[in-house]
Every structure is written in structure tokens, then in C-alpha cells.
Amino acid sequence: MTELFFITGMGVLTAVALWWGFRHLPREKWQIMAVVPRHKTEQGWQGLNLTYYGVLCANAYTVAVVLFLILATSARISLSGLCVFITGVLAVCLPASRIIARVVEKKKGTLTVGGAVFAGILVSPLLVLLINRVFEPVMATPLHPLILLSAVSIAYAFGEGLGRLACISFGCCYGKPLDQCPPVIQTLFSRFYLIFTGPLKKITYASGYDGQKVVPVQIITAALSTGTGLAGTLLFLNGFYRTAFLVTLAVTQIWRFVSEFLRADFRGGRRITAYQIMALVTLGFAGALALGLPVDNNSLPQPRLQEAVSALWTPWMILFVQGIWAASFFHTGKSEVTGSRIFFHVEKPHI
């Protein structure tokens, strides 16, 4: 019964978040959250723009981390080992999201979730082996590769889905204009589309599609990824670790490959993009891992959700999660492609 309430609650909250994002985030006002003065010039103060993109990315990262911790600790995996694992994965994935995007797209100030996932899946098995070897004396139980990878893939599905709200806010990762699509696509999305407004949206300054109806790729990705994450969570909590891992990775990576054909933002100069190749490699590598890991299902622990929630409700774990949010926002929230000037004055009638 606890598992049912948990999954239902996640589904309801996710649906509300996606509906709100679909309705509001394409508007101009939901891009710049705040401006911080940096230094004074003759034209006023030069400002640093802090974005809702950063807030929504940090929210997505944090939800993914919390879900990962809940699932993994429900299977009685060492909490201290999990924190080391999360720190290691983020230390690889956060810079990889910039480096891979810069290599593929030849642009500064851009990020890629696909590249970060590609790097994360490749490094995770090696990180598990390293942590088990180095921290074995202080961990209550070792990190089990299959359980850990299953929890990672489910958390990634949720992070991918909720992270697309950030893309809507910034106007990136956008779909093709409907009037440039084949008739079947135009008919399919005749009532379900996105319209972005504002000169600072990437869809405007990069492609000039301000105010046009475009294929809602971000919302489709968000709904499909979070729905897959819910299905994976259900499988995980019933002990089907291998199936949860394969289902979540297969659906998210196949859709990543397909969705590239519906996108209009620059993804490299080739018909089959580097990100599509990464998705296929990720899928193949994950499949080989899942099928190659020797596992005795009778030896794997059955998840206990209540134990996980109580284990995480401690001051140091709350601080750890808050630190994840702050680090994520610091990494993604500072806009490098927009600027601002700030002017201050005294309101004399109020003196």
C-alpha cells in the first residue's frame, strides 16, 4: 500500500508540474528570474542574469537524486557509499554536459543532457567498482551494480522529464515549426503545440521562430520520460531490477534518437547527429551490462520503502540534498548568452 501511495503521489505532482510548465513557461516573463549587479559602467551597472532555467534544472537534478537515494536505500544499499557515488557521477556529468555540447555544436554557453547521460552511463560501472574497493571497510553493504544501475536509470528518466521544463523556460531544444512539417505531423499537432515569446528565448535569437507554432518536443519528452520513470519505479519496488533498468534506458534512448528528427535547433551538421549516435551507444552498452551481470535473483533484497524514507530523513542528508541543489543552480543558473544593465535611483516622494 505504501508503494501505491508513493507512485500515485509522484504521478500526480509530476502531472501538475508538466501541465503548469506547458501553460506558462513559454512566455517571456519565465526566463530571467533575477539580476545581480556585477560592476558599474558609464551606461549603468552590468548585471548577471540568473535564470529560471537554472532553478528548474536544479529542481530536476535534486528530484532525481532524492528518488535515486530512496530506491537504492530501500534495497539496503549503504547510504555513505551512495553519497560518494552521487558526488562522483555529478563530478563527471556536470562538466561533460558543457564539454560535449561545445565539441558537437561548436558553441560556448550551451549544455547537453544527452552528452551528460552518455558520460554518466559509461563511468557508473567503473565508479561502483572503485567505491566498493576503496570504501569497503566503512560501508555496511557494498554497492550492488544491477540495483544501482536500475535506480540510476529510473532517476535519470525523471530528471530528463522534469529537466525539459527548463528547456521550455529558456526556449531551447525546440521542435520544428508546424508549417514546415509534413501534413501528417501538422494534423497530429494541430491542437497540441508550443508558442514561445520573447527576444531572449533561444528559439527566437537562434532561429527566428518567435510567436510561431512549433512541435512540442519538450513536453512530449517530459511526459514520456516521467511516465517511464513511474513504470520503472513500480518494477523496482517489486524487485524487477533488471527489467526496470532495461525498460527505462530503452524508452528514453529510443525516444531521444527519434525526437532529434522533430527538432529544429542546431544539433551538428549531419543528418544523424552525434547525440543520436550517443543514444544508440548508451542503449547498447546498457543492454550489454544488464544482460552480462551475473545475478542470483534469490540473493537480491526486496525493497522496503518505509525504511528508505526514514533513513533519509536526517539533518546531514537534508544538507547533502540542499548542497546538490545549490551546486546544480550555480552550474546552470548563470546565463552566459544574455546580459543586462541596471539603473538605480531614489524615490524622492518616499523620503
Score class of each variant (00 low, 15 high):
6 F>P: 05
7 I>R: 07
8 T>L: 15
12 V>W: 02
23 R>L: 14
28 E>H: 13
34 A>M: 09
37 P>G: 02
39 H>Y: 15
42 E>G: 08
43 Q>H: 14
54 G>T: 10
58 A>W: 05
72 A>I: 00
74 S>D: 10
76 R>E: 12
76 R>I: 02
81 G>C: 09
81 G>A: 13
90 L>N: 07
93 C>P: 01
94 L>Q: 14
94 L>Y: 14
103 V>T: 04
107 K>C: 05
111 L>R: 09
112 T>P: 03
113 V>L: 09
113 V>Q: 01
118 F>A: 10
118 F>E: 01
134 V>Q: 07
134 V>A: 03
138 V>D: 05
138 V>F: 05
145 P>W: 02
147 I>V: 15
149 L>G: 07
153 S>V: 01
154 I>Q: 08
155 A>V: 08
158 F>G: 03
158 F>A: 08
159 G>A: 08
161 G>Y: 03
162 L>K: 01
165 L>A: 03
166 A>E: 01
177 P>E: 11
189 F>P: 08
190 S>N: 13
194 L>G: 04
198 G>A: 03
199 P>R: 13
200 L>G: 12
200 L>C: 12
209 Y>W: 07
214 V>Y: 05
215 V>S: 09
216 P>A: 11
216 P>S: 12
219 I>W: 09
223 A>E: 02
224 L>F: 02
233 T>D: 05
237 L>D: 02
238 N>V: 04
238 N>L: 04
238 N>T: 14
243 T>R: 02
243 T>A: 15
246 L>D: 05
250 A>R: 00
254 I>W: 00
255 W>C: 07
259 S>V: 09
259 S>A: 15
264 A>G: 14
264 A>F: 02
265 D>H: 15
266 F>S: 11
282 T>Y: 00
284 G>N: 04
287 G>Q: 08
288 A>K: 09
300 L>W: 07
305 L>S: 05
307 E>R: 07
310 S>C: 04
316 W>A: 14
321 V>A: 03
324 I>C: 12
334 K>P: 03
338 T>W: 03
344 F>H: 09
345 H>A: 15
348 K>V: 07
